[in-house]
Write a protein that binds this DNA or RNA. Sequence first.
DNA 1: CTGAAAGCGCTAACAA
DNA 2: TTGTTAGCGCTTTCAG
Lengths: 337, 337
Amino acid sequence: MIGIKEIAKAANVSPATVSRVLHNPELVSEAKRNQVLEVVKRTGYTPNSLGVSLRKAKTHKLVAIIPDVISAFNYPVIRAIESMALEHGYSLLLGDTQELECRERSFAAMAKSRQADGIFLFCSRLPFDLDESLSLAEQLPPIVNACEMVEVSGIPKVNIDNRLAAKDATNYLLSLGHKRIGVIAGNLQTPSTIERLDGFKSALQAAGIHFQPELLQAANYSLALADKATRELMSKKDKPTAIFAFSDEMAMSCISTLNDLGIHVPHDVSVMGFDNISYSAYMNPALTTVAQPMAEIGRKCMELILPQLEGEPMAESLHILPHELIVRKSTGPAQKA
Amino acid sequence: MIGIKEIAKAANVSPATVSRVLHNPELVSEAKRNQVLEVVKRTGYTPNSLGVSLRKAKTHKLVAIIPDVISAFNYPVIRAIESMALEHGYSLLLGDTQELECRERSFAAMAKSRQADGIFLFCSRLPFDLDESLSLAEQLPPIVNACEMVEVSGIPKVNIDNRLAAKDATNYLLSLGHKRIGVIAGNLQTPSTIERLDGFKSALQAAGIHFQPELLQAANYSLALADKATRELMSKKDKPTAIFAFSDEMAMSCISTLNDLGIHVPHDVSVMGFDNISYSAYMNPALTTVAQPMAEIGRKCMELILPQLEGEPMAESLHILPHELIVRKSTGPAQKA
DNA sequence: CTGAAAGCGCTAACAA
DNA sequence: TTGTTAGCGCTTTCAG
């Protein structure tokens, strides 16, 4: 691979001049500038960014650490982050952890090993070993935590109010007359799931309805497990008249299974999703769900990391973005028993 | 950020020894080794990989250049690549181009600027300016082209036989008695779409059926455009009895629209998809589709790039992996007119 | 306006 | 077994 020295030699200038031509052309006489430009074009020279980054101690890369990059939910937030990152001269690396802590840590290590300048954390574990005696800002790279909150304080965080969102969704189901509502939850260990469950229970309680543990199934955001969960739910002697799935994907699987079972949605059973992914409007029936403002979440993430990248110390902050209930065709009035 | 020199100083050894402890511990006496290890642990030192990569001229990173990272189709191939890459000490960077040539080029530039050692190309443009006078191997980094074939020869390629796959799918529809088959294609400029269309036409021709241009709609893999295309198709005076969508996602949208229109799938109209994404079994009705062996595609990609990464010159090769027709519930016998 | 020289953090050849 | 040295490719003082 050709380097700056070869270019310099071929153009009869010093490496420093080549560098100037590339970054501060106004500092170089037109004659030399053209010589250099000519050689650069002819050879297709591209500066080795390892050298650049090493020298400048800046990579202009950010990494997003995500349990499941490709989930239809994460995509729009990534897109938003990336497009805003681009405007600010950063590029985004996608780190799909497949929920594995070792992968969370190895992506996080990219910041420590200076392969990236900052980190977006979409998982609920902080993939760093903290030293109690040091301040967070000293130990952590520029970082923003979103969607699945880490329990450590002092980090900028952005999220929706999962508890309230689930409560709103549940209240809507309740308002339709549903009294037995099944839940297909994600990973029960996960903060967002815990909060949603809490919101669900509190809505029930406010309506004077007892929470039935048998109506709760965890399906870990998997299509196959959601199918199983649905069958489980519908096998109870006292079947639910509505099912609240904590992701649209699980809701999709749920509807599909209900259909297999000869149960009509929403006539026999209503189904509520969560997220409002792009597919949800195209499900059959179109899915009633709680929309998360994914693009806004992404933009807020970028907004919060930028000052840190500029050198400002990390500061605690929590940004709750609004959710919205989207009523479509998968929910309807409860059948009279 | 702490560097190797500080570690060396703190452990009373030279930087070289620190490096040895980290990479060839057996070359260092136990005493010094422990001193160093102690300091490393205490300080949480991580080598700056910019320095390492610069020195070794190797980044152990590969980038996948993909029109749409998050499409349910691409995900499994990425997963397969990544897991195999990991086994070989490489990590995978995801470059989502959003179909923009400028983005294809900027990700490709990561190889030129030594931020990555090799490239997986899932788009149909070669994002490099070729110099006719030089050999490909001299100009291109280690590279493998998959799914959307670039027209340049000399590059290892992996794909399915799109033409045959579409032909098989069409023949199945034909065998069900369908004679008017609508097509919702992807991007008409794209090689895979052209091939699929070609396979579709040839199946029609073999059955003695004339291809009707009015029954062809392009929807560019978008849910919204597929909805429009479906409405367009069903607005013809002579409506199709089957629709072949060139992606499962478009098929999903198509089914949803048909449903809105009061048209029952598969009773009134059959719908065939393409890809066999994980969602397709959970659509309503479950989707009949052509499965692409995504994991295998991914593995083959890795297999083909490895020798290049080892220094072997790039060699022309074409690997066609088998597709498979998956019959589910969205297709049925044609209605008698 | 331009070049020489130093140095970013690391590793590997060479000497000791 | 260990340290010294040079150098990966680049940018940026500092002189001139």
